[in-house]
Amino acid sequence: MTDQELQERQERFITELLREAANLSAAENHLVHQARKRLAELRRGVGRPYPAPAAYDLVLQYDPPEAQEQAWLLTAGLFALHPMKEASGSRSLGSSLGQLHGVGATEARLRQLATVDQARLPHYLRQAVQLLRSHDVGIDYLRLLRDLCVLTNPKVDTHKLRLRWVRDYYRTVHARTGNSSAKGNTA
């Protein structure tokens, strides 16, 4: 499979998730019911060793590379927790969290995501997505999927990606506050 084909599959997969979210407000009650049921099944699988069968059904129809299946399953579950796409697009998880700078444990969540081992990553991602959901901050799920494909690849040094999330967080904070320092310190 070429990189282009993989990117197209990823885009179709995210489009399918967005279609499920759109069905939550459909005029037909059966579509609303099906979407609620499917998203609930996807949510139950986040952070568990074996996601719900509905997650496998959804993911495997797009035939991701075997090495990326866990990233796709995790993305589906995280989407089901917060089925809202970031309108501006191409915003990393770090940028989304940067929108909440100063709110509760946002920086702690970011630090955890930057340092946690791969086995506990789904747990901390779930907490971060729930925090974003509670403040209606969207996520670019296509970008998250692609990031998770990197983070779940044992052959890749994930430090660069995690550092990018931290960098994106502080860039967003700086852009929002107009300060050169996220903490407001002056030199």
Rank of each mutant, 00 (worst) to 15 (best):
L81G: 01
V59I: 07
V137C: 07
I139T: 05
V173L: 04
N23V: 01
L78A: 11
L24M: 07
I14C: 09
Q118D: 12
A119P: 00
G89K: 12
R120P: 00
D140P: 02
M84I: 04
T15G: 13
H30W: 14
L73N: 02
E66S: 11
P83Y: 02
Y56K: 01
A35D: 03
G47H: 10
E86Q: 10
A55M: 03
M84S: 08
F13L: 07
L81D: 09
Q112K: 05
R36I: 03
T172K: 08
V150M: 07
H33C: 06
G98F: 01
I14V: 15
D57F: 11
Y170F: 15
L100P: 08
S180Q: 06
L113H: 00
L110G: 10
A87W: 04
G184H: 02
V59G: 06
E41F: 13
S180D: 11
N179I: 00
A80R: 08
L148P: 05
R164S: 07
L144S: 03
S88Y: 03
V103N: 08
H159L: 12
Y50I: 13
R171Q: 14
H174S: 11
L113W: 00
E11H: 14
D157L: 10
A67H: 07
G94L: 04
F79S: 08
E5F: 06
A55V: 12
L78K: 01
R9I: 02
G104K: 04
A40P: 00
A114N: 10
P51M: 07
L81M: 10
W72D: 03
E8R: 06
Y141S: 06
D157S: 13
V59Y: 04
H82Y: 02
Y62K: 01
S181W: 03
E107I: 00
R146F: 03
G184I: 00
F79I: 05
N153T: 00
R120N: 11
E20M: 15
L42G: 08
R9Y: 06
T186F: 11
A119Q: 13
R9Q: 15
V129Y: 01
A40S: 13
E8M: 07
N29C: 00
